[in-house]
Write a protein that binds this DNA or RNA. Structure first.
Lengths: 191, 191
DNA sequence: GACAATCTAGACAGATCTGTCTGGTATTGT
DNA sequence: ACAATACCAGACAGATCTGTCTAGATTGTC
């Protein structure tokens, strides 16, 4: 096995196929057969690697979480200096996701398809807890008197923008969202 | 048939059962058999009344739309005098939906379960167009210089609050949402 | 009381889904 | 070279779902 042509493992191809299909078409409507067909992998291989469809879904969500988190934190650090700039910068970065093919937040759609109390809720909770903590932490760092409230309010705007970009197929919603976020931040921290 | 004990038609019992089950457990996971069992109705009756599960879902969504719209417009008129009061009053009324058993916006969850381009998207579009028009119209009536932007921003907050109340099982989110809405309105229209 | 319309109960067909199993092939480490 | 491992192709079982159909019961109307 040369360094150049590293063979992608079956597990990795499965995860890639699952990510594309589950996100684009929904977890419930995409069957195992579709996943293994796109991955170019036998069914037994999937079940030996993940054990069940549920477990594949769980790993798919976890990877989404890690990828979103890594990307957001990296871009925030690369582009902005202060906590205050980052608070509104989150919305700029969010807006760059609103490209054709954007299908909404994977955790919202997955939760809508799953029963409450399932592992999907656990994964969603973790993702949302991270994002809320990011907002609240930056609000605190920026000197907000009540960082909890400001963080929650910005989180509302963030989710609302995601919903609108998805359900209304309207990427331009990022602009009013950024303006509202700036207004909230300025008003709370002092212009 | 006396005036008092009006027998509820099979169609109506089916719609009631469908509303409860589809909303609480999801459209995909609830089968026809569950619906007719709760409605106390034979399967053939369902298919003679609606023709297909899809049609039952469509009527379920339409009834949700009509019910939400009627309730919101009625309570806004009963409780508030001015357009400006109504702009923030929408969030007060929204918060009263955040009771135990609240499962999020029916159109969001239905859309998450359905493929893009289906009739579910059409029904969701109509509902969301009504709500956005309500916000924008009130913003215009209240004298906003840019009612379109203010309306869209409040719509973002509204959706975000719904998402948080559902996914975080956190009814208290209505408070920061109302405060943010008031701040946006005051800042846009002048304190 | 007869007739027509509506309803009920449930079997059934056909499709689809998850997960298991068999049997054969390719790849890898030693 | 050889054994162990990983992988492929696909049949298969068992469950579940939508929608149709048969046959009998109930209801309202004249």
């Amino acid at each position: 096995m040369t360094i150049e042509s590293v063979k992608v493992s079956a597990r990795e191809r499965l995860l890639r196929a699952a990510d594309e299909l589950f996100y684009e078409e929904g977890i419930h409507t995409v069957g195992i057969d579709r996943v293994i067909e796109r991955a170019g992998v036998a069914k037994a291989t999937l079940y030996s690697a993940f054990g069940s469809k549920d477990e594949l879904v769980r790993v798919y969500l976890r990877e989404r979480h890690l990828h979103n988190q890594e990307r957001m934190e990296r871009l925030l650090n690369e582009r902005f200096e202060t906590a205050r700039e980052r608070l509104t910068g989150i919305f700029e970065i969010e807006g760059e996701n609103f490209v054709p093919g954007f299908k909404g937040c994977a955790f919202m759609t997955a939760s809508a398809e799953s029963s409450p109390g399932s592992f999907v809720q656990d994964e969603s909770d973790e993702f949302r807890a991270w994002l809320l903590a990011l907002f609240v932490g930056l609000a605190r760092e920026a000197g907000a008197r009540d960082p909890e409230t400001l963080g929650r309010q910005l989180h509302l705007l963030y989710d609302g923008a995601s919903i609108a970009a998805w359900m209304d197929r309207d990427a331009s919603v990022s602009t009013p969202a950024q303006r509202a976020a700036r207004l909230l931040v300025d008003e709370t921290l002092g212009g």
